[in-house]
């Protein structure tokens, strides 16, 4: 794996959520960098540092999920409970990794890879699922296809 490079394709178009996702990416990259340095030094002495990053990652993710769930709730997103379940599974996953790390299990870049894969997949599928509705309900932004329809109608009638 490589470092996670943020790109436009991961954006939902809700600035605050995009920023929160980027913060999570920074934490994952931090884990990647520490474990990469660890591999070079072959000492395994950076475990304490990884533990601290993992603790911050858990904290930040829990807060981000709470924020996101509040948006979905307010927008009456019909798949809220499924989404919440996925969030809980992910929190469980990081907490489990943190516990294993605390028990002295060697952490490797595999850990960063698991987190990275999960996040990309989650943003690209589940998060994209709620984004349109939240934008419409909370920000008053019309959905893509509707905008196109309006634009088409305008160009049809006002050529």
């Amino acid at each position: 794996m490589t470092r996670f490079v943020w790109s436009e394709e991961f954006e939902l178009g809700i600035d605050i959520i995009d920023h929160q996702h980027q913060r999570i990416v920074e934490y994952i990259n931090q884990i990647y960098d520490i474990s990469a340095a660890d591999l070079d030094a072959a000492t395994g002495e950076n475990t304490a540092e990884i533990k601290q990053v993992l603790a911050s990652l858990v904290d930040y993710t829990v807060s981000h999920f709470a924020f996101e769930e509040a948006l979905m709730e307010e927008a009456d997103y019909p798949e809220l409970s499924e989404h919440q379940l996925v969030h809980r599974q992910f929190t469980g996953l990081i907490e489990n990794l943190k516990a294993r790390c605390e028990q002295g299990e060697e952490v490797s870049q595999k850990l960063a890879a698991v987190l990275q894969q999960w996040l990309i997949q989650h943003i690209m599928t589940e998060d994209k699922g709620y984004a349109e509705l939240v934008k419409q309900q909370l920000l008053g932004i019309e959905p893509e296809q509707h905008r196109h329809w309006v634009a088409e109608a305008v160009s049809r009638y006002f050529q």
């Binding site: 605050i16 829990v62 807060s63 709470a66 924020f67 996101e68 769930e69 509040a70 948006l71 709730e73 307010e74 909370l138 920000l139």
Partner: peptide, 14 residues
């Protein structure tokens, strides 16, 4: 601000 409720939820959590 459109995200008041979510912002408040994060405060409450903290």
């Amino acid at each position: 601000y459109p995200f008041c409720k979510a912002h408040k939820k994060v405060h409450a959590l903290f």
